[in-house]
Nucleic acid binder design. Structure first.
Lengths: 150, 150
DNA sequence: TTTAATGTAATGCTTGCAATTACGTTCTAT
DNA sequence: ATAGAACGTAATTGCAAGCATTACATTAAA
């Protein structure tokens, strides 16, 4: 199985908010158009990003969302954890009913759980080392190049 | 989402084959009982493990499966790749239709693809560094402890 | 008070996993 | 030869999750 696209959508949302800041306040319609999905999907993600303290949201006329902290203080792991509701240390799905009678089945969890945690942690550590501000810089770099060409 | 339990089942199968080697040749019924699933599930995994060159299978009376190489030559990444059919570099599911009109949407793939690959690779590198023989040793260690207690 | 925005409940569609039944195929032992 | 044991595989079902969509509730500014 794959990790859901909510993660890349979450990064996309925050990048939009930073790069298109002259269009603030951003709303779910604008972002949904950029992401290519429905506004309700975006609003659900707003809720999760807000919950994680990454954005603030304002209802009402001229409402919309805004970044809650400097983008240099946000890393990709935070976004991943905010939107991809995988409980801790369960990226790998263990088969549930190994036999307690078989000496191998009886010990599989004991033997494997630590290894699975370690594998998951290396993925998460890598994401943690990636800053949202770098993603934004790269995006702006490409936009600048494309504007020069045009 | 989670990575399917086929991975942990695959490790379980190979561990059974190594640890319970006095019961060879192993068959799908015995292993299905240890894993706690149906024999057809196990046979499908046999097919994938065979495809990956990890085991051999013999039909017919007194058939069954056997390890195709020394367990010290098998690492957990091989098992993962054998059974968890995630095409290369697609552990993360990217949202499919970012707008080409929006300067952010237009560049999301360019900016993110390399980062996602890198994150996936750290998970895979960690699995690659884990040997099946270590898993088997740990399992046998626990079995020995439990036999001493009894 | 109108309007624009988020929040959320309900529904449907699709996909993938796991389990199961049933049957086909192959090989050994007698 | 043939009976039986084993893998191989097709078809079906149940179930859960993701994503999309519609509809409506709530909020707040102009």
């Amino acid at each position: 199985m794959q990790i859901s696209s909510r993660f890349t959508m979450g990064v996309h949302i925050l990048t939009c908010m930073a790069v298109l800041k002259d269009q603030m306040p951003m709303n779910s319609d604008t972002i949904a158009a950029s992401v290519g999905t429905n506004r309700v999907i975006i609003r659900k993600l707003f809720g999760q990003l807000k919950e994680a303290g990454l954005i603030t949201a304002q209802r009402g006329n001229n409402g919309g969302v805004a970044l809650a902290k400097p983008v240099s203080d946000i890393n990709l792991l935070e976004i991943y954890k905010a939107v991809d509701s995988i409980p801790d240390n369960t990226l790998f799905h263990f088969h549930e009913n190994p036999s307690t009678l078989c000496p191998v089945g009886r010990n599989m969890h004991r033997v494997m759980d630590g290894r699975l945690e370690k594998a998951q942690k290396s993925l998460e550590d890598t994401l943690e080392g990636m800053s949202l501000s770098d993603v934004i810089n790269d995006t702006e770099h490409w936009i600048a190049l494309q504007e020069k060409e045009a």
